[in-house]
Design a protein around this nucleic acid. Structure first.
Ligand SMILES: [Mn+2]
Ligand SMILES: [Mn+2]
Ligand SMILES: [Mn+2]
Ligand SMILES: [Mn+2]
Lengths: 230, 230
DNA sequence: ATTAAATTTTAGACAAATCTAAAAATAAAA
DNA sequence: TTTTATTTTTAGATTTGTCTAAAATTTAAT
């Protein structure tokens, strides 16, 4: 069995952020990564060299970069840990889904593979974290699912929230305030072309208005509603 | 509310080790601490200066050192975290009591106080970790020890020998023969009502049978051991 | 009381991760 | 195609934690 390969917390944070960024754009830039990690471009460059030396990254200077297979595998393990811990915090320790991210940001760096596999079993092998993001399995396989954002949802069609793209605590707080969470069924009542804002209706609630910015970050699946586990 | 005061993992490890060492001897020496932490005396001296500057330590060079009130408080929080995580690993994730230490050594450095208090509640406010060591409460209070004899010890509970009531040489020889001495951790595997004899297990040894007569003379403290292990 | 041994501290070095300021390369505008 | 702006990298520092080797101090032995 492969022993626990260890990367520093900082390296793991970089790998994870690169993974996420390259999901959106295929290639990642120094500035984008620096912004994502709240650090400086120069620091990113420093780290890129190290990751390249460790053969986790495809990188040529001035040309952008992306993870290679090793790097992707490592990133997925970190993501797995992060999401399992988030699930644990919400489902077992009664944290709100908007307050678990910071803590998981630390817990994700605990190395033991055995620990995380046991935790997975203890939690009943959940498929998604409290924000609706899928949890990679023990081999790092990630389930993909089709999701569209709220802005793309046609008027009058009921859909169920299946994920939140930008998980800043500010964003989560706003949704919380409007009673929108994972599994919430909602419907677009009106679209305002002026600023692309939406009036959204949640069952048993007065309608609320969401900005285009927010709408783009709320992911829904209109065909197969996710089974909300509790 | 006091925000989470953060100390580096290395500082926490030092504080904890100093706490344990000064339980045994009142004052701690550089070499002893270096040995406990598997590091070098020079490194210890470096850290002592920092801990002193942060007012966690009473220290004058060449004179030994010990924690002050702040330092003791910090150490107890780390010990609390360590032991609660160990309990979690054994009771919830089915780890063996002999394989949790390393992992807890990492988990103990996760900062969030809220996390640890929630974990505590989730676990049902356990009083002792899987090795029989008492778990400090949220305010850092450690339970005071109480001594009972082996015959009174509940089945399956790990305890540490803290005294021998009748110290005849015959008695001591018998205990010696069975590898039981001060500080030995043991657990009762079975009680035979017929003659009130006990089957006792010491780590890394085959089980041994003790008569009721012997058991009554072996004193253990199931909460606060003399020589605290992590 | 000297001398020898052990302990502890200092001096100086190194690795990891970060930063600022300046230089180099690339991209965009004129 | 020059010029200008933006992005990225380098050069050089800084902080934290660690180390080795040597010096200082304390303790133990003769
Ligand atoms: Mn993290
Ligand atoms: Mn999440
Ligand atoms: Mn530790
Ligand atoms: Mn323990």
């Amino acid at each position: 069995m492969a022993p626990n390969v260890r990367y520093s917390a900082s390296k793991e944070n970089h790998l994870k952020a690169i993974f996420h960024l390259q999901q959106e754009h295929g290639i990642v830039t120094t500035n984008a990564l620096a912004a994502a990690l709240q650090t400086r471009p120069a620091s990113v460059t420093d780290m890129l060299k190290k990751l390249k030396d460790q053969k986790l990254l495809i990188y040529e200077r001035y040309k952008g970069f992306k993870l290679n297979n090793e790097g992707r595998k490592a990133a997925l393990q970190v993501i797995r840990k992060h999401r399992l811990w988030e699930y644990f915090l919400v489902k077992k320790l009664q944290f709100g889904w908007d307050e678990v991210h910071e803590i998981a940001e630390e817990l994700e760096h605990i190395a033991s593979k055995k620990l995380i596999d046991r935790l997975d079993a203890f939690l009943g092998f959940p498929e998604a974290d409290p924000h609706g993001d899928p949890i990679p399995d023990s081999q790092g396989r990630l389930q993909t699912r089709r999701q569209i954002n709220l802005a793309q949802l046609p008027l009058g069609k009921v859909a169920q929230v299946s994920g939140i793209a930008s998980q800043t605590s500010e964003m989560l707080e706003l949704l919380q305030y409007n009673h929108i969470r994972l599994g919430t069924r909602l419907e677009i009542k009106k679209k305002f072309p002026f600023d692309e804002s939406l009036e959204v209706k949640v069952r048993n609630r007065p309608p609320v208005t969401l900005s285009a910015r927010v709408a783009k970050n709320v992911l829904v699946n209109d065909d197969e509603p996710i089974t909300e586990r509790r």
